Amino acid sequence: MTESPGILMTLVAFALVLGPLVFLHELGHYVAGRAFGVKADAFSIGFGREIAGFTDRRGTRWKFGWLPLGGYVRFSGDMNPAGQPDAEWLAMPADERARTFQSKPVWQRAIIVAAGPVTNFLIAIVIFAGLATLYGVNKTPSVVGVVAPQSPAAEAGLRPGDRITAMGGRPMTTFTDLAEYTTLRPGETVSLWVQRGGGDLKRKVTLSTLVERDRFGNEYRRGQLGIGPGTPVYKRVNIVQAPVEGVRMVGSTLRSMIDGLGQIITGRRPVDELGGPIRIAGLAGQQLAMGPVELVFFIALISINLGFINLLPVPMLDGGHLFFYAVEAVRRRPVGPQVMEWAFRGGLAVLLALFVFVTFNDLGAFGLWHGIAGLIG
C-alpha cells in the first residue's frame, strides 16, 4: 500500500521549496544590479496580477503575483524581453538612462544575469556543506567487499578485495562514485578498470536493471553491478573543509544531471522521466513527510536544477542572455534587434512547449491518463 503526504502538505512543501529558491535566485540578480548602480523597478515572486506588495524608498516595487511558479526582477529601462535599447530608452533623461541595465558594459550585464544561477549553486553548496559537517561524508573506498552470485560483477570475474579505479573511463575513488555512475546506467555495457594485487585488469560488464518502488508508489529504474562495500567509512568534516565538500557534491550532482539529460536526448532513458512543477510539488510533499533533513537535501537538488536549467543557452533564460552577451563581446557590438526579437520568440515557444510536455508527463505520473482510459474503456 502506497502512502500519500496529502494535498495540504504537498502545497506547503512546494511553497517551502520553490518560494525561497525563486526569491534568492532573483535576489542574486538584484544584488549584482545594485552593485553596478542599476535601478530595479520591480521585484516579483510569482507572475500575473499582484496580490500584495510595497514600494521601498529606492522606488522598487516588491510584490507577490497570484501564480506562484517563478518570479522576476525588472531593472529600469528593461522595456522588452530581449533587454535591447529602443526609442523609449533613448528618450529617457541622461541621469535615469545611466542607471538602466542597457547602459552598462557587457561584462557587467553578464555578471548581473549570471548572478541568479550562481546564487542557486551557492545555496546548494551551503546546504551540502552543512550536512557534511553535521552528519559526515561517505568516504568508503571503491573496494569490492562482497559479490552477489549471478550478478554482472560475478560474470565479469570480480572478487572481494578488488579495487575499481575507473568505470567508463571515469575515475572512481569511493563507493559513492560507483553507485552514482551505475545507478544512471541500467542495462548499459561499460568498461571497468580494476586493481587486483599488483596488477591491473580491464573488464566489460553489462549492468543489470533493478526496478524499485518507494513507499509513495514512485517507481525507479536503477543500474546495478552486484557488489557491496567492505566496512563503511564516514568522515565528519570541519568548517574549513565543509565548503570544499559542498562544491564537490554540487559538481557531482551536476555531472549526474548532465548524464541523465544526455541519456534522455539520445534515447537511452524514457522522456517521461522529465518532470515539471506538478511532479516537483509531489516530491516536495513526500520529502517533507520523510523529515526536515530530507526536505533540505531536496531543496539543494532543486536549487542545482534551477541554476543548471537557467544556464542553458535558450533565449528567455539567463543562459540565452549570456550567449548573446558572448557574441556581443566577440563582435564588439550587440546582436541586431530583429535577430534578438525572433530568437526570443523562438525561445518562448520552446519553453511553452516544454512546459506543456512536462505537465503532460506529470499528470501521467499521477495516473490521470490511466484513469481517463479506464473511464472510457
Rank of each mutant, 00 (worst) to 15 (best):
R74D: 02
G6M: 11
L207K: 05
H29I: 02
G364D: 08
P117S: 00
T173C: 02
V31P: 05
L11N: 09
T165S: 14
S256W: 03
Q84P: 01
R196K: 14
N80W: 11
I7K: 06
T173Q: 07
V335A: 09
G347Y: 02
G157C: 10
G130I: 01
R213P: 03
I299G: 07
L348K: 06
Y181K: 11
R331H: 00
G371F: 15
H25G: 00
G285Y: 10
G226W: 07
G347A: 08
L274S: 04
L351Q: 05
V358T: 12
L158W: 11
I372P: 05
T253V: 01
G187Y: 13
L27H: 03
F23M: 05
Q338W: 10
I372G: 02
G169V: 09
P5E: 02
L131T: 05
S4Q: 15
M79G: 08
G59K: 08
V22K: 00
V31Y: 06
D95T: 04
L131F: 15
L348P: 04
W342C: 05
Q263M: 15
A353T: 12
P105D: 03
V271H: 07
R203T: 12
V17I: 13
S142Y: 01
R236G: 14
P337K: 11
M249P: 02
G285V: 14
T119V: 00
P20R: 05
R332F: 01
I372Q: 02
A353E: 06
V247Q: 03
V190D: 10
K139G: 03
V327T: 06
F121P: 03
P81W: 10
R49F: 00
G319P: 09
D272R: 15
I264P: 02
D272H: 12
R185V: 11
R34F: 01
A52N: 08
E328S: 09
I376L: 14
I127V: 15
G157P: 06
E180S: 08
M340I: 12
K39M: 14
R97Y: 02
R196M: 09
F324D: 00
L348H: 06
Q195H: 13
V335N: 06
G276P: 08
K202H: 14
D272W: 10
T206G: 06
G246M: 05
M257D: 08
R49E: 06
A353H: 08
N305Q: 08
I7Q: 12
M92K: 01
R222E: 06
T60S: 04
Q150D: 14
V126P: 00
N238S: 15
R269S: 11
G70W: 05
R236L: 11
G59E: 09
R34S: 01
Y234A: 07
G37F: 03
T2K: 02
H29R: 00
E245A: 11
E294Y: 06
G276M: 13
